[in-house]
Amino acid sequence: MSDTARPAIEMTGVEKRFGSTEALRGLDLAVPAGTVCGLLGPNGAGKTTAVRVLATLVAPDRGTARVAGHDVVRAAEDVRRAIGLAGQHAAVDEGITGRDNLHLLGRLHHLGARRARARADELLERFDLTGAGDRLVRTYSGGMRRRLDLIASLVTSPPVLFLDEPTTGLDPRSRQEIWDTVKELADGGTTVLLTTQYLEEADRLADDIVVVDHGAAIATGPPARLKAAIGSQLSVTLADPEQLASAAAVLSALSGGDAKVDVAERTVTVLAQPGVAVLLPSLVRELDTVGITAEDAAVRAPSLDDVFLALTRESADTLRSAA
């Protein structure tokens, strides 16, 4: 942590194979200290394996991974002292109370009985679980269990936190609570690596996003830059189907993209070339100039969903240069 130049989390060419499945094929990753990195990818992309390698649960076949400056294989114990892990499950003991869960984890972190107890009380209070602290975890709602699970990874105030799909399967309110907690931790200087399938989650929380597909990074950058890599989407709906062709010509000319016509819906859509800004007034004016009246016209900025779909659809190589 004293060495700020060095990323808090780094992976270089990490490969991992399970039987005939190549979970990771040369994943590179660098997360600067104090930032939140969102690892985004479809199911089976290798996100969880990446976290398991970093959390010293799985040894890489090839490549190196370092966390807080320590090699995950050669200095696994040092890594374990620097990290917190909250996984896809609520990895807490359901047969005991929330307070005892935290208290026992504190002891396993060798805080000593007294400090472990004090820390459990402090965490429950800070994360609004004081009332539920003395109830058995099996009486908790799904959202509360996951919150406890997240808190359980904070017993030592680890400088590096791994969250593997922390909100999968949660209702919107519980999700918001987890997001608030992660934001708070990040503001406090914790380095967070978060895997998610939810683009909104990555968009909200991450400073940088790494899109992973088939075990390798296919794009890296802040959400805004990834979105800028693809253009906005224009669409118009016409009253008169006769005008569809000429409308398509206008849209293509404006956006530099290839307009698509849907005759049944009487709409024309086009994805603008990256960097070509089209504003709604100019779109309407251009259509007007050639005598086309639109029932509806829209310019939509690209969402992270568009980015994700575009990236995972195309081949990794073309996109690595584009991003």
Binding site: L57, R81, L85, G87, Q88, L105, A152, S153
Partner: peptide
Amino acid sequence: GRGVTDRLRSMPV
């Protein structure tokens, strides 16, 4: 099954 083992294994125990 519940991931408790993974959590414990990621700790210096």
